[in-house]
Design a binder for these strands. Structure first.
Length: 228
DNA sequence: GCGACAG
DNA sequence: ATCTTGTCGC
C-alpha cells in the first residue's frame, strides 16, 4: 500500500515533541470509514533488548470470518529510546515499512497503543493514521492518561476515559470478567465506531484477533531473526 | 519537589 | 516490551 506522508526521525526528545505538536493538527476526527469494513490490519512489534532489534508485523484479516488474507514482517534496529509519550518514534519506522509491503490497502488499522488518549493527544495510533492516511484505532492494554470508572463485568460494558474535562477514549470490556481495553480514536473514525469495530474483533479473547495475530507473528519473526 | 509514566 | 512456575478455571 502507499504511504501518503513521510515520517521524520527525530534525534532528541525535544525534536520528537515538536514533531507531535505539528502533526497533531492533521488528525481528522470525522468518521471516514467505508460503510462496510471488509478488511482490517493489525499492527504489533516485538523487541530484543540485547541486540536492539525490533520485529514489526502487519496482518490483514477479513472481518467476516477473521481469515488472514495478507501478512508482512520487518526486522530492523531501534533508532529511538523508549520514552512514555514518544514511543511511536520507536515503532513507527518498522511498522510503516511493514505496511508499505502490503499488496492491498485495508479499510482500517488497529494499533497496539493509544490514539488521542495521550498527553499531547497524538499517540501511536494517531501518528500511524496521519502517516498512512487510513482510519486507525488505538487499543491500549493499560491506562496511560485520564480517569475513569470501572465498567461493568460483562462483555460490551464501557465507561468514558476523561482527561482535563474531555473524553479522550473509552474503557471497554471485550469479554466477561477480563481486564478492560483502552480504546481511543487514531484517525478518521468516531470513538463510537472504534469501539464497535474493536468489540467485533474480539469474539473470543480480550484482545482483537488482528492484534493477536500480529503479536504472535512479530514474536516468531524476532525469535527467528535472533537464531541466525 | 513527589509520583505517574502506552510498549 | 521482557523476565518467568505454578495454578485456577472451563
Amino acid at each position: 500500500m502507499d504511504i501518503v506522508t513521510a515520517h521524520d526521525r527525530p534525534n532528541t526528545v525535544a525534536e520528537a515533541i515538536e514533531i507531535q505538536e505539528t502533526l497533531r493538527g492533521l488528525v481528522e476526527l470525522e468518521d471516514r470509514c467505508p460503510q462496510e469494513i471488509v478488511t482490517v490490519t493489525g499492527l504489533d512489534v516485538a523487541y530484543d533488548e540485547e541486540s536492539d532489534l525490533i520485529a514489526a508485523a502487519a496482518v490483514t484479516l477479513e472481518t467476516a470470518g477473521f481469515r488472514v488474507v495478507e501478512k508482512r514482517t520487518v526486522v530492523s534496529e531501534v533508532s529511538f529510546p523508549y520514552e512514555p509519550g514518544l514511543f511511536a518514534f520507536r515503532e513507527l519506522p518498522s511498522l510503516i515499512d511493514a505496511l508499505r509491503a502490503l499488496d492491498h490497502t485495508p479499510d482500517l488499522l488497529i494499533c497496539d497503543g493509544h490514539g488521542l488518549a495521550h498527553p499531547r493527544r497524538f499517540g501511536l495510533a494517531c501518528h500511524v493514521g496521519v502517516v498512512t492516511g487510513l482510519p486507525t484505532v488505538g487499543v491500549g492494554k493499560t491506562r496511560f492518561i485520564g480517569e475513569h470508572a470501572e465498567p461493568g463485568r460483562e462483555r460490551g460494558a464501557r465507561t468514558p476515559l476523561t482527561d482535563g474535562g474531555e473524553v479522550v477514549g473509552t474503557v471497554l470490556r471485550t469479554q466477561d470478567g477480563v481486564k478492560p481495553l483502552y480504546v481511543s480514536v487514531g484517525h478518521k473514525i468516531s470513538l463510537d465506531n472504534a469501539c464497535r469495530q474493536v468489540l467485533r474483533l474480539c469474539p473470543a479473547f480480550r484482545q482483537p484477533e488482528t492484534t493477536r495475530h500480529a503479536d504472535r507473528l512479530a514474536r516468531d519473526t524476532l525469535k527467528e531473526a535472533l537464531a541466525r
